[in-house]
């Protein structure tokens, strides 16, 4: 049975521990720590050093339409056996968040996939190119604004 760290901490307690004003939103399995792109790296570093979240399980993204984009990080602590979900909110125009490859090198291809399909750039990424689609592909198909078009 997976234990969620957010079930065990009050928001104020967590903000204190991480040294950041963070919010918590969502219910059950979608309960997540909400951060801004500016807070992201400091929060992640605190999660690694203070709470032992040494494993990045998945990195994905959601297009919430008018509410902008979300980059979702699924973290796991192999030492404490706890799980936490972190969401970085970013608006569709800027669509840039800092890379976490500096913390977990395994984020490399996850971030390229998100860039490829959702069009979110990761500042500081060593190789910010398409991963799954052909290089000459235009647009980012998982965006709600993407229009399907015939290629032939």
């Amino acid at each position: 049975m997976v234990k969620f760290l957010l079930d065990e901490f009050e928001p104020a307690q967590l903000s204190n521990l991480l040294g950041q004003e963070v919010a918590i939103a969502g219910e059950g399995v979608s309960r997540a720590l909400i951060v801004t792109p500016e807070q992201l790296i400091a929060t992640m570093e605190a999660l690694v050093t203070k709470l032992g979240f040494d494993y990045l399980g998945d990195l994905t993204s959601v297009d919430r339409g008018a509410e902008g984009l979300e980059v979702v990080y699924h973290l796991y602590s192999l030492t404490n056996q706890r799980e936490i979900r972190v969401k970085a909110k970013v608006d569709a125009e800027t669509a840039t968040v800092p890379t976490v490859t500096t913390i977990w090198p395994g984020a490399d291809w996850f971030e390229r996939e998100v860039y490829d399909l959702m069009g979110i750039s990761f500042a500081g990424h060593p190789n910010m190119t398409r991963l799954l689609l052909p290089e000459d592909f235009e647009g980012h198909p998982l965006r709600k604004s993407y229009k399907l078009q015939k290629r032939v």
Binding site: L133, Y146, R151
Partner: peptide, 8 residues
């Protein structure tokens, strides 16, 4: 058939 990724 209508996918952005697949050759029709």
């Amino acid at each position: 058939n209508e996918s952005y990724a697949v050759v029709p």
